[in-house]
Write a protein that binds this DNA or RNA. Structure first.
Length: 529
RNA sequence: GGCCCCGUAGCUCAGCGGAUAGAGCAACCGCCUCCUAAGCGGUAGGUCAUAGGUUCGACUCCUAUCGGGGCCGCCA
């Protein structure tokens, strides 16, 4: 173990780093847990911990169970994690899957770090796209009555609306046939939107994601809530009427200067001020977004996190400006963008196309490879890096497949524990570490609580997945050493005491793998099949 | 034109401002009478895109440039 503390402290203390390091070393040596403390280089402090420390960590992990590594860092701070928030116009696709897994794992990670987390989904049910949904569903309703549907350009052609058409027939009979939109649009819209949200909830459930709150955009309309949110901005002098500069570069053909109501988002780092009310007096889509975030702030969250697809990167600054203005800078907002998922089958990329029917849904993925594999794989990349997902490879049982690799380590421990139990051998929480490989594993276990904090601080659940891979690797190494050196094997049939001690370390490994997989929402494997 | 992300080993990628930059694939050489070899060990492989700057110290922070991807509209 090493620390750079002396060099960090040097500036504030006004003393040379080496002097500070010497001083620190002298004091640290008095601690029983420190075996060696020596100064190196420009002021690094190298510490060798007493072997007992690593023994204690193993015991601690076993005693704490999957709560091992949980931290009080969050101190009950209320965090809202908004994720998925897909338009309620169809089933979730692969892109949403990544956002769903990332958001859910991030939420669990923050919980493990002691935050009070709310998982939330914003339903975009107030805009023009749900009108399009209603029209599409109406055609399926006509189809259910034996008429041929007219799926015009721009409507949603997917089959998933066929049952919605049937259900509409069930509910309304033929009363909506041959009627104008003014008669049926509102009812069909509500009906179809609810049907889509049921579909989406089912999709999320298949992945193991449960939201705490579904927040409806529509609920903001007609209740003065948008007006109130804008009033809040207005009171801060951030709303004005004006004309925007034409966009640089290629001008849209029909661009003309118009006066509209603008939010001075540039005040908080946005590139241009954003329109909230169009020149015809109606709201822009941005207005309800402001109201929604106002609502989050009003609900008393101490911090907000939004998980968006990378294609929404252009909205980050204005949303940040909004939250900053509405909370007077007191509520931090972190926006995490999830990059594309590229799909492969046996190394061959396959293109998604709605028209060609090769559109891949969340359900397709989960049905083929299962929720555990899907979740783990979605976290094997940083959120802002593109991710390759190969249907064939992710179910392969080899070390090239990180899911398998980690699960295999857990299964190996469970196998040993079963064998020990069958042989009637005792267990103990106190390990007996002798070999370097055993210490390597114990040290890796000791990193876990710190890793949870770092990952949580950065809002980066992928760090957990990478850590688990490393832990599994250390464990496989140790396992293999048992081949050459029988003393390192965990079960010693003729020596119950040795077995009890040796089996403590793998048990701690299983605890940490369970805890880590738990954060990722993956079930640890008891055995490999 | 503007903004965002990325550029690290042949490939895919890790790397809270700290020492000699790490894994996995692919390549080469080894390890099963054994608690699961579905695994493990070893060798080789690098001007961390480039140029400046801040710092005792930069892959990490700042600026510019080059290269790859994404986004842009009173569309939601």
């Amino acid at each position: 173990m090493a620390t750079n503390a002396a060099m960090v402290l040097a500036k504030g203390a006004g003393k040379p780093p080496r002097a500070i390091a010497e001083d620190l070393a002298a004091r640290l040596r008095t601690d029983a847990r420190i075996a060696v403390a020596e100064v190196a280089g420009p002021g690094f402090l190298n510490l060798r911990l007493d072997g007992q420390v690593w023994h204690d960590v193993v015991t601690e992990a076993i005693d704490a169970g999957t709560a091992f590594g949980h931290s009080g860092m969050g101190a009950g701070v209320k965090v809202n994690v908004e994720f998925v928030s897909a338009n309620p116009t169809g089933p979730l696709h692969v892109g949403h899957t990544r956002g769903a897994v990332f958001g859910d794992a991030l939420a669990s990670l923050l919980e493990a770090a002691g935050y009070d987390v709310t998982r939330e989904y914003y339903i975009n049910d107030g805009g023009a796209q749900v009108d399009v949904l209603a029209r599409s569903a109406y055609e399926r309703y006509r189809e259910a009555h034996g008429l041929s549907p007219e799926i015009a350009e721009g409507l949603y052609p997917g089959d998933y609306l066929v049952p919605v058409g049937e259900a509409l027939k069930e509910k309304y009979g033929d009363t909506l046939l041959d009627k104008g939109e003014d008669v049926w649009l509102a009812d069909v819209r509500t009906f179809a939107t609810e049907a889509m949200m049921d579909l989406i909830r089912d999709d999320l459930a298949a992945l193991g994601v449960t939201m705490d709150v579904f927040f409806s955009e529509k609920s903001l309309y007609g209740t003065n809530r948008i007006e109130m949110a804008l009033k809040a901005l207005e009171d801060k002098g951030l709303i004005y009427n004006g004309v925007l500069e034409p966009p640089k570069g290629k001008l849209p053909e029909d661009w003309e200067p118009r006066e509209q109501t603008l939010f001075r988002s540039t005040e908080a780092g946005d590139d241009v001020d954003r329109p909230v009310r169009k020149s015809d007096g109606s709201w822009t889509y941005f207005a309800p977004d402001i109201a929604y975030h106002y609502d989050k702030v009003q609900r008393g969250f101490d911090a907000l996190i939004n998980v968006f697809g990378a294609d929404h990167g252009g909205y980050v600054k204005r949303i940040k400006a909004t939250v900053s203005a509405l909370s007077d800078g007191s509520v931090p907002l972190d926006v995490k963008l999830t990059q594309l998922v590229r799909l492969f089958k046996n190394g061959e990329p396959f293109k998604m196309s709605k028209r060609a029917g090769t559109f891949v849904t969340l359900r397709d993925v989960v049905d083929q490879v299962g929720p555990d594999v899907t979740r783990f794989m979605m976290l094997t990349r940083k959120n802002d890096a593109p991710l390759d997902f190969d249907f064939a490879r992710v179910t392969e049982q080899s070390k090239e497949n990180p899911v398998f690799y980690v699960q295999y380590a857990h299964a190996r421990v469970k196998s040993v524990m079963r064998k020990a139990e069958e042989a009637g051998l005792p267990v103990s929480d106190h390990p007996r570490l002798e070999d370097g490989a055993e210490y390597d594993v114990a040290r890796k276990i000791a990193e876990w609580p710190r890793l949870v904090e770092i990952a949580a601080r950065n809002n980066e659940p992928h760090r957990v997945a990478f850590y688990l891979y490393e832990l599994a690797s250390e464990f496989h190494t140790l396992w293999n050493k048992g081949h050459e050196n029988p003393a390192l094997r965990f079960i010693h049939e003729d020596d119950p005491e040795a077995t009890a001690a040796k089996i403590a370390l793998p048990r701690a490994v299983a605890v940490v793998i369970s805890a880590g997989l738990g954060i990722l929402g993956v079930k640890p494997a008891e055995e490999m099949r």
